[in-house]
Design a protein around this nucleic acid. Structure first.
Lengths: 341, 341
DNA sequence: TTTGTTTATGCAAACCTTTGCATAAACATT
DNA sequence: AATGTTTATGCAAAGGTTTGCATAAACAAA
């Protein structure tokens, strides 16, 4: 039953000064048609009364929340949290906020978050779709409601919207090529869920690189991991090590899996990189502290976030005009460390 | 110049049905004084026209944004990102959103974020203060504006608000006690920035444990790291190893630093845990994949986030009444692995 | 028929700000 | 003195929803 001490409004100031709220508004917004005297009085009093504009009212007026929704599979991974960093750094100077949703790789959750954010809460979306992508109706619905959407990192082919990717193919190709050039001949690949565009591109690059260098493509050297954490690397690696002719190199879908993989390999008494080379993907900050330190493919995560956000804001500010959709690609880079020869 | 196809409002429905907007509102909100016939007609049409309430308008009306602000030093660390997970999971079923700000351990940034979030955008704050805490005027100002605030993980003593902590002292004491019990006698501590309550508590526990077991307290065994990443562990460890009588155990401020520390130790050809035991703090998911796997102190991060959010929501929903402030403590747990004897 | 009661609906204010249009006052020009 | 121009301000609507109060309509009771 406490009386909520409501904050100072433009009306309070107006009453105090015996002017209309409109005058106060104009004075505070540097409208030209205000006498110097009035303006100064208003500004002075506003400061004294600690006036702060009510963004809730402004939002309603402008039909804009100055908030965007970001949906990622998870935020605890280094990859996505540093993408978010990039997004945030672009948004902050613009005074735009970001609400984050985690899909946990679940289609249901993803669409429920979209729905929740949709109710006028959000001016646009930045989404990296879940790999459990049954369909993309919930995302298509955004287009119908004229809410801008930018897809990043993971593709969703049926959607014709702005997209920002890392050139997975290039990164993976570099990695496999490097293994070949350092003398590996029996190169295995621990791939990720095949519904993911990223996993598909990396797999294709793996195959293409082998072909280019005339190495045989063996189905048993391609194993799928069901996730991106170290524990997801264990079983696939065990499978590879149990082969009659085990690989002399493993290119993994990401650093997490690579770490699990190295763990298994070392545990089996096999030396890295002498007997088996390992390459990851992501350049997680932990990766260089393992022994051996992990060779990996660095991705421009921060830039990925920045660029995606920049493109989204452009859409929002141009009222989602019908200009051509943009598909951008950023370039990854091989970082050679101790886990390769 | 495109015409923004504005969404269906309650007024559109009202016109279509020749009733007043008030009637539509009541019909949709199950108000008792509405005839069944009208209600059904309204609901049917609302569904057909894909009506979704305009939260912007509701926010203004209720003077509530259903959004809380969360400020953490950084989100890329496992610790904070999993706290955020807990917060989010509590908030989601309540339909409350969260905007995140990163202080990057900077006082300036922290207060600028508070200011930005303040302008009616946010119903309450969840803050883990930066260690560059010059003062807490910006946080005190929240109290003046009657905006609820819950502090978590890191204390700010001059503030009388709800707080949720991990019992750092207990966790650190367990760690040091464990080292002693496994035969270590020259135990060093890499502590964190001393403006942090967490670092202070852990340091105190370290000292108390040594005293309890009659071990000498040597100043040169206490070294300060300037951050929480592996690289911050390097210099402090070098210092320790260079001592005339190097330690036979190192208790570090967190897993990140421990990882850097182990890196240096192994590099120096010293074996872990035979010659030096290492214990971290946090239980980062990577920690068990290092060799040796890292003994550490697990913190209930997820629960920390959940509880903090729960307490904040209580404050918000009780209109920030003057009930007693709550100080809660959660308990950490030692996880023994390969880096200790 | 009158009065009283219930039921269903509408009006208008409130939440806070901005802005197009109107207007009053002050001043300048003839 | 009359007309025209400039300057400063106010009015009111708009943005979408909820809700206390008023009221019309329908019905029941006397």
């Amino acid at each position: 039953m406490s009386i909520k001490k409501s904050r100072t409004t433009i009306i309070d100031i107006a009453k105090e000064l015996n002017v209309s709220p409109a005058t106060v508004s104009r004075a505070l917004n540097n409208h030209p048609a205000i006498s110097v005297k009035t303006r100064e009085a208003v500004i002075k009093l506003a400061r004294k009364m600690n006036y702060q504009p009510n963004l809730l009212a402004l939002n309603l007026l402008h039909k804009r929340s100055n908030t965007i929704g970001v949906i990622v599979p998870e935020i605890t991974s280094y990859f996505f949290s540093s993408v978010i960093n990039g997004i945030q750094d672009l948004l902050k100077p613009l005074g735009v906020n970001m609400i984050i949703g985690q899909s946990n790789e679940s289609y249901e959750e993803e669409s429920s978050i979209v729905r929740a954010f949709c109710s006028t809460l959000v001016d646009g979306f930045l989404i990296s779709p879940t790999f459990e992508a049954k369909n993309s109706d919930h995302l298509k619905a955004l287009a119908d409601n004229n809410i801008p959407l930018v897809i990043f990192d993971r593709d969703c082919e049926e959607l014709e919207v702005d997209k920002v990717f890392v050139d997975e193919y290039s990164g993976a190709f570099q990695a496999v090529e490097y293994l070949i050039k350092t003398g590996c001949r029996r190169i295995a690949h621990i791939t990720g869920p095949q519904s993911l565009s990223t996993a598909k591109h990396r797999l294709r690059a793996y195959k293409d690189a082998l072909i280019k260098y005339g190495l045989p493509l063996k189905e048993e050297y391609i194993v799928e991991s069901s996730g991106f954490a170290p524990e997801n690397g264990i079983e696939p690696t065990n499978k590879l090590l149990a082969l009659p002719e085990p690989p002399d190199a493993i290119f993994t879908i990401n650093d997490g899996v690579a770490i699990g993989s190295m763990y298994v390999i070392k545990d089996a008494g096999i030396s890295i990189p002498e007997q088996i080379s390992v390459i990851g993907f992501d350049d997680d900050p932990h990766s260089c502290y393992f022994s051996p330190s992990l060779t990996t493919v660095w991705q421009p995560t921060y830039e990925l976030g920045m660029l995606s956000a920049r493109i989204l804001m452009k859409r929002i500010n141009t009222n989602n005009d019908t200009s051509k959709i943009r598909i951008e690609k950023l370039f990854p880079e091989l970082i050679s460390r101790g886990s390769t020869k």
